[in-house]
């Protein structure tokens, strides 16, 4: 990745707008992801449980294994790409400080935890939904702030 080689990103007239654009779109993705999940899969435990396992009283079917695996597969790909690129830009712009390292590790590990617990919730026990919801929000919030701070460092630091 070229931006890991440029000495000072803030003074680079080519990389600065490229990274700014990427970061703005990352913010939009993170926000949109929450809204889309809310209207389709659910972002709170009860709604997610209904989506995964259905609800007899409301005559709702749960997700088939094939549908779940497809959803999970796509989620893994998108999350790994978003979380990794966001963390790389953030580390680069924050000078790899201890706080940055902590934030990045929290973001990546909670993102990974959200994916693992989603599968565990489907295959093992619905109780894992609570861990999924917590880790989902934590990684989104941390990623959102990492992106905002990166934008701030790129333009105002």
């Amino acid at each position: 990745m070229k931006f890991t080689l440029v000495k000072d990103l803030r003074k680079d007239r080519v990389m600065k707008p490229i990274l700014s654009g990427f970061l703005v779109f990352t913010l939009l993705y993170l926000l949109s992801d929450i809204f889309v999940k809310q209207s389709t899969f659910g972002i709170f435990p009860h709604a997610i449980e209904t989506s995964l396992f259905g609800n007899e009283e409301e005559f709702l079917d749960g997700l088939s294994q094939a549908s779940f695996l497809e959803l999970w597969h796509v989620e893994i790909f998108f999350i790994m790409m978003i979380a990794f690129t966001t963390s790389t830009v953030y580390i680069r712009l924050s000078g790899a400080s201890k706080t940055a390292l902590l934030a990045v590790n929290i973001m990546l590990l909670t993102a990974l935890l959200s994916l693992v617990t989603l599968a565990l919730a489907y295959y093992l026990s619905p109780h894992f939904i609570y861990i999924y919801v917590s880790s989902f929000f934590i990684w989104h919030i941390v990623a959102f702030f990492c992106t905002l701070i990166s934008l701030k460092r790129l333009h105002y630091a």
Binding site: T4, L69, I76, I79, M80, S87, V104, N105, V116
Partner: peptide
């Protein structure tokens, strides 16, 4: 840099998870 090393290790775990889901599908 150490920071990138940790990120890459976690990225590797994501990759394994992606392969696992592909295998299951």
């Amino acid at each position: 840099h150490k920071a990138y090393k940790i990120s890459i290790l976690i990225f590797a775990l994501f990759t394994l998870l992606l392969l696992l889901s592909g295998y299951m599908i």
